[in-house]
Amino acid sequence: MKISQITVFLENRAGQLAEITAELDANNINMRAINIAETAEYGLARIIAEDSEKAVQILKDKGFAAMLTDVVAIGVPHRAGGLNDILQIIAAAGIDIEYMYSLIGEQDGIAYMVFRTKDADALQKELADKGIF
């Protein structure tokens, strides 16, 4: 499933991430996943929230550098080789994964992974053709 992810710029200092979560909390926005990428000087927080459009607007209004990015969330069977099956399909299709992280789902027995590729639609279609959603 193609979903919207929020990316927020993080300054490298204590308390910066807490300022972001405080804003989301104040607006009663639930996060489903968060992932941090960092360099020596700064970082990026990548967030999946229940209402990404609203969340990104709130953060922008508060002066954060924030944007929406299309990513694909895929259910991964909770068993050995579950992720490998999916990655083999993606690899065979020659699709380059920029980054990925896990997402909390509500269905037992299935883990969710968020995939970022250049073309979210192409990835979604490739997996859907193989019955993976």
Binding site: T7, F9, A37, T39, L44, R46, A65, A66, M67, R116
Partner: peptide
Amino acid sequence: EMTPENFSDNLGEIE
């Protein structure tokens, strides 16, 4: 200061 024009979801782009 980071600006919307220079912001990206891709660390490589920012760098």
